[in-house]
Amino acid sequence: MMDLTEKKSVHALLARHGFHFSKKFGQNFLIDDSVCPRIAEEGNACAGYGVLEIGPGIGTLTQQLALRAEKVAAVEIDTRLLPILQETVGKFENLHVIQGDILEYDIPALLEQEFSGLRCAVCANLPYYITTPILMHLLESGAAIDTITVMVQKEVAEKLTAKVGTRESGAITVAVNYYGTADILFPVLRDSFLPPPNVDSAVIQIQVKQRYADITKNPSHFFAMVKNGFSQRRKTLVNALSATMGYEKQMLISILEEMELPESVRMEKLTMEQLISLSNALSERAVV
């Protein structure tokens, strides 16, 4: 098996294929020999599991996943990497490399096609510029995924795993909490990548489970409210939602009073339960 954690070998591999890094795809390949095995081990790459990898790159993490999991499906958007992956991981019989954009796939259908009869997990070193869209695509799909274990920018990891109702939280924090629980597993320094990015990273894991679906009367309204409220987070909740969603301020104030919250409260101060209660009340009383 080719060593993809040694810089000289990786540079030679890329030179053989005439490969140049693409800013468009935000490419930073993992070359730390301790990181990928740990992602695989903590990310449910084991017997009985099918693992979906997003953006395999040159195959450093792919190797570790394929050594452990029942099957691996790796979706790569960059066609230039396909011959490289054929050289680095092509001998794994339990691996299927798929060329395409993960955002264009029906995730439940893809998992059924690739992993029928297996439990499913996702592992990935996500490009920083598209972290949130990919995570939301996975979570909103409703696919039967046990865990999502991904490398993200350190600051994004902190926001994803922040406690809802604190200053550090945001719309993505609320979304992740709606669909599961997120924790930081371990930090990863910038020199673990080729080329090294300008920031450090962290590996997070989302335990996927529908925590609040049963008590949310209108999920579409809930997410729209959260997105709009956090888009103007410096404003009070009343001013933010009246400006972005057209709600009458007095009605918003009345609902907040019933929830025993001051009219000066900002959305970032509300817990998950309070956000859902607010959304439910607005859905019942108003037509926007």
Rank of each mutant, 00 (worst) to 15 (best):
T244A: 15
M245I: 01
G43D: 09
F29Q: 09
L82E: 02
G117Y: 03
P37S: 02
R233G: 08
L118Y: 03
V203M: 08
S34Q: 14
G180H: 02
V97C: 12
P196A: 13
E260I: 10
D146K: 04
C46N: 15
V287D: 14
D33G: 05
Q232M: 14
V97T: 13
S279G: 14
T271M: 13
F21L: 08
E260W: 05
S242E: 13
M259N: 08
K227W: 01
V10H: 06
L270Q: 10
M272R: 05
V203S: 03
I148S: 09
E53L: 08
M151R: 06
F25R: 01
E42Q: 14
N125S: 07
Q274W: 12
L67Y: 14
V174E: 08
G26F: 07
I253G: 00
C120G: 08
S116K: 14
S192G: 01
I172K: 08
R68A: 13
I215D: 04
M1W: 06
R234G: 08
K159P: 00
L82Q: 03
Y247I: 09
S141W: 13
T60P: 02
V238W: 07
S192N: 01
Q210W: 04
A73F: 01
R233P: 14
E93F: 10
P187L: 06
D78W: 04
I84S: 08
T173I: 00
Y179P: 02
S22A: 14
C36V: 11
G48D: 07
S242N: 11
T216S: 12
G59P: 05
I206W: 11
L138Y: 11
P187E: 04
K91T: 14
L252G: 08
G50H: 03
Q63S: 06
L81P: 05
T62D: 09
R16N: 12
I102M: 10
G165I: 07
I148N: 12
N218G: 04
E158Q: 12
R68D: 06
E42R: 10
N239E: 03
M267Y: 09
F186A: 04
T216C: 15
I130R: 10
F223C: 01
I77F: 01
G55W: 05
E87I: 07
L126K: 07
V287P: 00
G26W: 11
D32W: 01
S264V: 09
Q153S: 06
T79P: 09
I172C: 01
D32T: 04
V51Q: 02
Q86N: 10
T236I: 02
E263G: 15
E258W: 05
L189V: 09
P197K: 00
T216W: 09
Q99S: 11
S277I: 00
Y179V: 04
L30P: 12
L261Y: 06
M245H: 03
T244M: 03
R266E: 13
E104A: 15
Y49C: 06
I215K: 10
A109M: 09
M259L: 15
L67N: 13
G165T: 03
S264H: 11
G246F: 09
E6S: 12
E158C: 03
Y128F: 15
Y128V: 03
A66I: 14
V152I: 12
D183R: 15
R68E: 11
P187D: 01
M136C: 13
R211S: 10
S242W: 01
E104T: 15
